[in-house]
């Protein structure tokens, strides 16, 4: 509706202020969302990169994989039923390089599976972040309680757990390192339905992620901020359009008197909301992509196109709701009152 655009053109400052606020709020939302995703990836890329399926831990572990020890006979029973089941363990620990510098890692060992790195005894496969810290292929690393040295075989991209780089070790080495014959977890990939196994408790991928102690607390806080910002932007729309509509009550009355439909007044408001939101979102998407490039390398930041699109749609929907709620007063405007109130 061109009348909507004409009002924006004539009252540039008023709409510029609204656009700036939406731009700032949406930019902040995109950046925090990027940080939330980045942290989530930094915290649990190892798990998040697995396909959808079912995780199993010991029922006695009380939803804490650290306490889980799956009996070998149970493990065999599950594997005999589901051939592609993989048993694995995750343990936080330290590796010392040749200069005895200590680095925190998450040791991961698994039975043979394409989902995890295959590692020969005495070898170790590391997340690439350690390469950036100066470790090279062929270096010998030591895990102090384990007398056998571990030779770096290769690096893999983006494999982190609990904010630490993942270090894949051979399952037999792992058993010696942690003096344990049992694995902590079983994973059945692409299992749509939960299968019940005695002594085991099952989790979907998302449910399992939430059992990681730091993961849910971190994500809940960040997501709360993201949604809070979205609600604030909706309220800003409602308040701003309410204030504009209050100023224009007289004008709406006159327009109604000469025969303008109330629905056309709503369309005018929605068009303005769409113009302002689209422009503000386009700018903030551009800036959030720029932020991705200028943010420090160590900062976990991941803003996918899907998240950007989803948040943009949410912003538009919230803006639409906010503007519509504030515009309900337009329905009540009586043309006669506007005429009697004098010049608009």
């Amino acid at each position: 509706m061109s009348i909507a655009w004409k009002e924006i053109k004539k009252n540039k400052m008023k709409f510029f202020i609204l656009g700036s606020i939406i731009f700032l709020v949406s930019l902040l939302t995109f950046i925090i969302s990027g940080l939330a995703n980045g942290l989530s990836q930094d915290n649990a890329a190892l798990i998040k990169d697995l396909p959808n399926g079912q995780f199993y831990i010991n029922r006695d572990a009380e939803e804490n994989y650290n306490l889980s020890r799956i009996d070998n006979s149970v493990q065999e029973q599950v594997i005999s039923k589901q051939k592609d089941t993989v048993a694995f363990s995750i343990q936080m620990g330290f590796l010392n390089d040749e200069s005895d510098k200590q680095r925190s890692v998450a040791f991961v060992a698994s039975t043979d599976s394409k989902l995890f790195e295959s590692v020969a005894p005495g070898e170790i496969v590391l997340d690439r972040s350690l390469e950036k810290e100066g470790i090279d292929v062929g270096d010998t690393l030591a895990y102090k309680p384990f007398d056998k040295p571990l030779v770096v075989k290769r690096f893999v991209d983006h494999k982190k757990f609990s904010h630490a780089p993942v270090a894949y070790v051979n399952i037999e080495d792992y058993k010696k390192m942690y003096r344990s014959e049992e694995m902590q977890l079983l994973f059945i990939p692409r299992a749509d339905e939960t299968q019940n196994f005695k002594e085991l408790q099952s989790f979907s991928n998302n449910d399992f992620l939430n059992t990681i102690p730091s993961y849910s607390a971190e994500q809940m806080s960040l997501n709360m901020i993201v949604w809070f910002l979205i609600v604030i932007s909706g309220m800003l729309f409602a308040i701003f359009f309410y204030m504009m509509n209050v100023q224009k009550i007289g004008l709406y009355g006159i327009l109604k008197a000469i025969g303008v439909k109330t629905s056309d007044l709503f369309k005018m408001m929605w068009t303005q909301m769409l113009y302002i939101t689209s422009l503000s979102l386009a700018l903030s998407i551009g800036c959030s992509q720029l932020f991705k490039k200028i943010a420090p390398e160590d900062m976990p930041y991941l803003l996918t196109n899907e998240t950007t699109l989803l948040l943009s749609i949410v912003f538009i929907v919230i803006g639409f709701i906010g503007a519509t709620l504030s515009g309900l007063q337009m329905k009540k405007v009586e043309p006669l009152h506007a005429i009697q109130q004098g010049e608009v």
């Binding site: 009348i3 009252n11 025969g259 005429i339 010049e343």
Partner: peptide
């Protein structure tokens, strides 16, 4: 809208 016209005491024009 279609068959009537209005002139009020004030012009009541659309300011923008």
């Amino acid at each position: 809208a279609k068959k009537f016209g209005f002139v009020f005491q004030f012009a009541h024009l659309v300011p923008f």
